[in-house]
């Protein structure tokens, strides 16, 4: 997905000299083509995430469209106050693009995992929160939102799903409506596993790539079903539950503990029950 990020940025920058890259010593080689072509608008600013955000806000204040990019937890959790004040409160919009979530860096342990980003960023006023699940979703949503003056958050993962869907900012997609009494709602790359698990089950399936603003219209359509939110992060469940009076439960991250194992990203998914078999089993029980 990071390669798509670079390809889309290259495409956009050909016609827009207000686009500036601000990197935190991550994806530097990937953006070499941009650096060679636009040296005045490429800054590997170093490992100083708080300042990356503040500087990007300063650039935005003078009309630029910054893309500030590094590893997820360092940019979102460490720099939360900079995002809140320098970007949001000051209304100096920009594009915050992270990589690594939730478990792309599984082998690096809890310091490099990130699953609170969507939940904490959606609480900030007027922020757009996007979790593209595929390369296409990233491409479409980057193009449609990058220059609107708002703070837009893109959470990238290098483990995208490969399901081809129509993409429009703020709109969820119904992948399956079988009038089931259970509706599964999910977001981002985990759709790959969720889709597979739901295949032979009598459940409806709704997919979100935009966490904020959440598509309330589609949620309303399934109000009278048991909603199960399957997600490898916090944020989607809270966003769905903004619609009052739903019967909704969360399935995903373990309660109140770090995912402090190592290994592969698939191993962590299996450990916390987000592999296809575990999801299917959980839904089967739900349908009994």
């Amino acid at each position: 997905m990071r390669r798509q990020f670079k390809d889309t940025v290259m495409g956009l920058s050909a016609g827009d000299d207000k686009l500036v890259m601000v990197l935190g010593d991550v994806s530097v080689y990937l953006f070499k083509e941009f650096q060679d072509k636009y040296p005045d608008r490429f800054y590997n600013m170093g490992i100083c995430e708080n300042t990356l955000i503040s500087v990007s806000a300063g650039l935005a204040s003078q009309g630029f469209y910054p893309f500030v990019h590094t590893i997820n937890p360092f940019l979102t959790e460490r720099s939360y106050e900079q995002i809140k004040l320098d970007m949001c409160y000051n209304r100096f919009g920009g594009n915050i693009v992270t990589c690594g979530a939730s478990f792309d860096y599984a082998w690096d342990g809890a310091t490099h995992q990130s699953y609170t980003d969507l939940a904490i960023l959606r609480m900030l006023p007027d922020v757009e929160v996007i979790q593209p699940g595929s390369r296409k979703e990233l491409d479409v949503l980057l193009r449609s939102q990058y220059d609107n003056g708002k703070v837009t958050y893109y959470r990238l993962s290098d483990k995208p799903h490969t399901i081809d869907l129509p993409v429009k900012f703020g709109r969820a997609e119904i992948l399956k409506d079988c009038s089931g009494k259970v509706t599964v709602m999910t977001a981002g790359p985990i759709l790959g596993n969720v889709f597979e698990a739901c295949k032979d089950l009598q459940v409806n399936l709704v997919y979100f790539h935009t966490i904020k603003p959440i598509d309330k219209e589609i949620i309303e359509k399934f109000r009278n079903t048991d909603i199960v939110i399957i997600h490898d992060a916090f944020g989607l469940f809270e966003a769905v539950c903004e619609t009052a009076g739903l019967s909704a439960t969360y399935y995903g991250l373990p309660k109140d503990r770090f995912c402090d194992t190592y290994g592969t990203f698939e191993a962590i998914r299996e450990d916390i029950g987000l592999d296809v078999i575990s999801i299917k089993e959980m839904l089967r029980k739900k349908l009994l």
Binding site: V55, G58, Q62, L85, D86, N90
Partner: peptide, 25 residues
Amino acid sequence: VEASTGSLGHGIGLAVGMALAFKIQ
């Protein structure tokens, strides 16, 4: 007023971004 400040250690980073913007321009 060019920037909303209050929490310490923020305005200087904004200032760096603005100065960089003028250099690019």
